[in-house]
């Protein structure tokens, strides 16, 4: 594997909360992408954490755009660069609310049109920037400001919605495994056409964890199978190595839930439902990897 470049493309520092794993994600996304890159950012924490006008911590151009428009904007940008003969990377960096709920039609359109771009959804499982309201990505049982008793609906299965578009490259990642994340961004950018990476980004204030625990919680998400790392290249799925072990022998789900304040008081029946969803997801992925479906 190639060395991860030493260059940093974020000046010290953003206004992100201490221990923000979305910031950690951005460090590695930009290391993989390099300086010839434009980020398209819809409203989310990342719009705010850039710094205070007229200064920004981002050392690549960022186009801040309205919520529902990010992928449409990226389509136009990508076409414009191509017509100028430029190979500039166009990367949408959007939150879960801006992707799974609000931006999904523009995203679906851009994938269908075959736009040459990378769409990254960093998933902190709620509307973080506005104070942690539930989103379609919030898992069942999690307390947010709008689900004070714990969310009763399941997390929307974004990855299978994206998969239905049959794009050339799709992956999941989390910055608790930065090398895996870095490699996936590299592969996505080297693949012509649309790519999509869904990144689990533990969020200290939103998940009610201490700021030093966000990386550890990301590892637990993988070890318990709550978050499975995989990539699909031209329809071929492979489970990534950090998840291989977890597929064989999973850590107990309670290890992941009990360290997070947002799951305080979760009922046994909800934990059961979460466990069943994990098992179903893993079984489906294993079948697909084995070429059985």
């Amino acid at each position: 594997m190639a060395e991860i470049p030493k260059e940093e493309y974020l000046e010290k520092c953003t206004t992100a909360c201490a221990g923000c794993t979305s910031s950690l994600t951005l460090r590695y996304v930009l290391k993989a992408a390099g300086p010839d890159t434009v980020l398209v950012v819809p409203a989310c924490c990342t719009s705010i954490l850039q710094g205070i006008y007229p200064n920004t911590a981002f050392n690549v151009p960022v186009y801040n755009i309205a919520f529902a428009a990010a992928a449409a904007c990226a389509s136009g940008m990508s076409e414009a660069f191509a017509s100028m003969g430029k190979k500039t990377n166009v990367i949408v960096y959007a939150g879960d609310g801006g992707t799974i709920d609000i931006g999904i039609q523009a995203l679906s359109g851009a994938l269908e049109r075959g736009t040459d771009f990378l769409y990254i959804c960093y998933d902190n499982e709620a509307y973080g920037n506005t104070g942690m309201q539930r989103s379609g990505a919030t898992p069942m049982g999690a307390r947010t400001t709008t689900t004070p008793g714990g969310k009763t609906n399941a997390k929307k299965d974004l990855d299978r919605i994206i998969a239905a578009h049959n794009i050339p490259y799709q992956a999941t990642a989390t910055p608790a495994y930065p090398k895996d994340l870095y490699e996936k961004v590299k592969t996505a950018l080297a693949t012509p056409g649309p790519s999509f990476i869904h990144i689990l980004a533990p969020c200290p204030p939103g998940w009610r964890i201490a700021s030093d625990m966000s990386v550890a919680v990301g590892k637990l998400a993988v070890k318990t199978g709550s978050w499975v790392l995989w990539e699909r290249k031209y329809g071929e799925l492979s489970i990534s190595s950090p998840s291989k072990g977890a597929m064989k022998k999973r850590a107990p789900l309670r290890d992941y839930l009990s360290v997070q304040g947002r799951f305080k008081g979760i009922s046994d029946s909800t934990v059961n439902e979460l466990e069943q969803a994990i098992e179903k997801n893993i079984a489906q992925l294993a079948k697909e990897e084995a070429g059985e479906c």
């Binding site: 000046e11 520092c13 953003t14 710094g51 205070i52 007229p54 200064n55 911590a57």
Partner: peptide
């Protein structure tokens, strides 16, 4: 358009 430029300390001394 309103445009920010990269600068160390863009968010103050964190």
């Amino acid at each position: 358009v309103a445009m920010s430029r990269p600068k160390k300390g863009a968010a103050g001394m964190t």
